Amino acid sequence: MFRPELLRILGITDSTMYAWLEAGILVRPISLGPNRSNGNARRNAWIREEVYQWIRDQAAKSRAPAKPARGASQPA
Rank of each mutant, 00 (worst) to 15 (best):
M1N: 06
M1A: 05
M1R: 01
F2E: 14
F2T: 08
R3N: 10
P4S: 01
P4A: 02
E5T: 12
E5M: 13
L6S: 00
L6W: 07
R8D: 09
L10R: 00
G11D: 09
T13I: 02
T13Y: 01
T13D: 08
D14C: 09
S15V: 15
S15D: 15
S15W: 15
T16R: 06
T16I: 08
M17N: 14
Y18F: 12
W20V: 00
E22G: 10
E22Y: 14
A23W: 08
A23E: 07
G24D: 09
L26A: 09
V27S: 05
R28Q: 08
I30T: 13
S31F: 03
L32C: 06
G33R: 03
G33H: 08
G33W: 00
N35P: 11
S37F: 13
S37K: 13
S37E: 15
N38W: 06
N38Y: 05
N38D: 04
G39A: 03
G39W: 00
G39N: 00
G39T: 01
N40W: 10
A41C: 09
R42N: 09
R42D: 10
N44V: 08
W46K: 02
E50K: 00
E50L: 06
R56L: 02
D57A: 14
D57S: 12
D57Y: 09
A60F: 13
K61R: 15
K61T: 12
K61S: 14
S62Q: 11
S62H: 12
S62T: 07
R63S: 11
P65Q: 04
P65A: 07
P68M: 10
A69V: 11
R70M: 11
A72H: 04
S73L: 15
S73Y: 09
Q74H: 14
Q74R: 15
Q74D: 15
A76E: 15
